[in-house]
Design a binder for these strands. Sequence first.
DNA 1: TTGTATTATTTATATATTTAAATAAAGCGG
DNA 2: CCGCTTTATTTAAATATATAAATAATACAA
Lengths: 92, 92
Amino acid sequence: MKNKYKDESALLKAIAHPMRLKIIELLLLELPTEGCSVNAIQKKLTIPQSTISQHLQILKNKGIIDGSKTGTRVCYRVIDKRAAKILKILKP
Amino acid sequence: MKNKYKDESALLKAIAHPMRLKIIELLLLELPTEGCSVNAIQKKLTIPQSTISQHLQILKNKGIIDGSKTGTRVCYRVIDKRAAKILKILKP
DNA sequence: TTGTATTATTTATATATTTAAATAAAGCGG
DNA sequence: CCGCTTTATTTAAATATATAAATAATACAA
């Protein structure tokens, strides 16, 4: 049977968290001017680094973001178009 | 502080379930020809009535759907435009 | 009124998610 | 090499979610 919405719900579930929505917003909007590193994200939010890394891994595992490492830093960016579209619907 | 994404994540979380996505799809697409009652929904899916009712209450509590009762039946319909838009993004 | 159909709620259990601290790993500067 | 910075992972505990059975509530029909 088709139309089981398994993948789709997994995508939504990964996005459906206040912190992760905020992270996606940061990566979409402030990535050009400010940084895209974990550290840059952490400076914006007020939560421990490990928590941020964990959220980033959740997003990465679903293919919503991707990270490119240079030195010790990792620059994350949003690669799933649907995530960006959904964010625009939520905050038009 | 603004932009906490609390409401937005609650909306997504309510939608982020295979069964609930399917229910929303049914209500959006088959509501004209087929029925919009809990029973009509149950005939499409293969899960117990109580489970469907519970999913419907979750969607209703977030204002995603609304139900109008006539007799013993309740006709549900999607009232949140964002939910419909998100579904269209997921299944274009 | 009695029974039947439809939907909602309660209860219990299993599973998943969230969080932060602690620790590990990996690269760079001195 | 040593210490520092940056990021990831593991662990444990708290909280939330999902599921189905059982039960309740309601309206209608006979």
